[in-house]
Design a protein around this nucleic acid. Sequence first.
DNA 1: CTATATAAGTAGCCTGTCTACATAACCAGG
DNA 2: CCTGGTTATGTAGACAGGCTACTTATATAG
Lengths: 107, 107
Amino acid sequence: MNADSIRGHLDGLLLAVLEDGPLHGYGIIEALQRRSGGALEMPTGTVYPALRRLERARWIAGDWDTVGGRRRRTYTLTRAGRRALEEQRAEWIRFSGVVGSVLGGAP
Amino acid sequence: MNADSIRGHLDGLLLAVLEDGPLHGYGIIEALQRRSGGALEMPTGTVYPALRRLERARWIAGDWDTVGGRRRRTYTLTRAGRRALEEQRAEWIRFSGVVGSVLGGAP
DNA sequence: CTATATAAGTAGCCTGTCTACATAACCAGG
DNA sequence: CCTGGTTATGTAGACAGGCTACTTATATAG
């Protein structure tokens, strides 16, 4: 999975894993990996800045808590984030339809 | 169609329209628009540099000719380009499968 | 002659992703 | 005890591709 291909689609993926319930950054990375069957191994340098971006956009809300002596920032999907996720899904349907049809191969 | 979403997928689209036969830049832009039902309106500042990139990669070969007094650079898919296109198609299948499954919404 | 269509191109910006690193606490094995 | 692995968060800087906004040129329609 090359780096550029994910570009512009990461936000939707992050929102999607948070739909199942609040999760912290590290957990999100693991969830992405699990849900993609190992295909998605997002580096922390990609995910953490992206989460802050989503937080700034008010699509997710972050809270610090401590579990077993370790600090975690747990993110929760906001109402706006839920709406954004739906929009991302719709956008993905459009996008994949267009690319799929132009790329063709299978008619 | 946002700007980033296309990123990393443009090469495949360009190669795909050239699969039907040689075409020049302007014609490629029109073909993309036609084949996407109007969804893809690629600016020249995106397409022309991309074509030169593909040419440098030897995936397409460009030739100047003149039609009706206007100079055109007509691009033809090379053998390597054909292989690259197949790879792009396979990559797209993988990528869209992963994103689709993680993004979910529809199980 | 003016506007539109055809045709190709460039300079410079923007921004999201990656690499590589730093930090820190916990735990298991030797 | 201390080494290495896991959990956990983060940053700085590089990179690259697509975009905006332009330029140039010819043909054709009005």
